[in-house]
Nucleic acid binder design. Sequence first.
DNA 1: TCTTGAATAGGACATCTGTCCTACTGGGAC
DNA 2: GTCCCAGTAGGACAGATGTCCTATTCAAGA
Lengths: 215, 215
Amino acid sequence: MSAEASVQEQINILIVDDHPVVRQGLNAMFSSEPDIAVMGMAASAREALSLLERMQPDVVLLDLRMPGMEGTKAITELRRIEPDIRILVLTNYRSDEYIVRAMQAGAMGYLLKNTPQEEIVNAVRMVFRRERYVPTDIAQRLFEAMGREELSSRELEVLSLVAHGCTNKDVAQQLFISDKTVRNHVTSCLLKLKAKDRTEAVTRAIERGLIRLQE
Amino acid sequence: MSAEASVQEQINILIVDDHPVVRQGLNAMFSSEPDIAVMGMAASAREALSLLERMQPDVVLLDLRMPGMEGTKAITELRRIEPDIRILVLTNYRSDEYIVRAMQAGAMGYLLKNTPQEEIVNAVRMVFRRERYVPTDIAQRLFEAMGREELSSRELEVLSLVAHGCTNKDVAQQLFISDKTVRNHVTSCLLKLKAKDRTEAVTRAIERGLIRLQE
DNA sequence: TCTTGAATAGGACATCTGTCCTACTGGGAC
DNA sequence: GTCCCAGTAGGACAGATGTCCTATTCAAGA
């Protein structure tokens, strides 16, 4: 390999994460890799979008959960501005519901934040070469998630209220519908989440990240 | 200040976190601070304990949630070996139930992982000087948590089963007690967690980290 | 245009849930 | 030794829950 070739192979990346520690950590990891250059770091999706106009990174490392903009929307926006960009999603949770949507929105791979350095840089090189990177144990979950029915937004609305102790009647009043309708929604949640009762449904929904708790 | 004085003021720290990215990030943050030296990094509490025998750090940065050993137990063990050590707890969650116990076990302060660099190094310097470091918004939660009643282990056992869709009768069978007794436990959970029904109780328990979900 | 799916609503019914009582037991704390 | 608390258990009852039906409306898609 000549010097010119390695210059051509230089991978320019942009790090997007709202945790300063994570940004620093990723930056440090890549600084010891000669073929990878961190062009910039952003603390929010909005910041990332404005950076994208000034620089042309090959790969964006993007945290799925950030305040402000939802991860999947960020992916769509990034690819609208720069369709050729490869997006590698970062997340804390193995069972993040949004992973599926992130992949559908056009992410090339994803990583858990507890991944060792070796694997992280490897993943960056793979998505740079336009190969998908999906850790095997998670591919499994992705697969399971594919066959799952999604809750409708109304069902989610109902279930969130149920999670906070509302009876069917309470929910009905808050949503201005009949409690019979609420029962229909709850029953449908039970079916889709394979839960025996409303309490298990809430547990499953929280597990999958469908219901957000206060911090 | 003479050169000797600044050598004396050198703060030696040990980083304990199972996430490689976080270890690297903290390491990078401290590398730009002349008065702070990272003596070592450990990926588990066990590793930290064995490192502690070879080096004498002043401050340990400890992740509360790690596989293997629970954070509070790690704190107790670290202080048993080296009573003078200052422990600064790191956690992801603002409302981590274990924060309270961590402070009781002898931690000098704690930090959220989304804290900016400036504040992290500041916190290290404070606990090095044996001053407690507690972010104000979290001190508030600590205060609230103080007045809270803890669930008994039996109640927790019952509530975990309830979270997974067991009826009172189901729980009774699994624990070899009467369903009347189960009702007593559930009612007592509702009181302690200020919940209107079992579903809200489960939500609150998950929020507080009392019930662990699969990943 | 026709069909499908989501959201809406009601009746009827068996079960489950939560509450308010009372009461006994065994293990610690003082 | 006595007191207190957690855990145990029971009866009774009103109200909530989940299921099985049927049925209407409306918007999106084929």
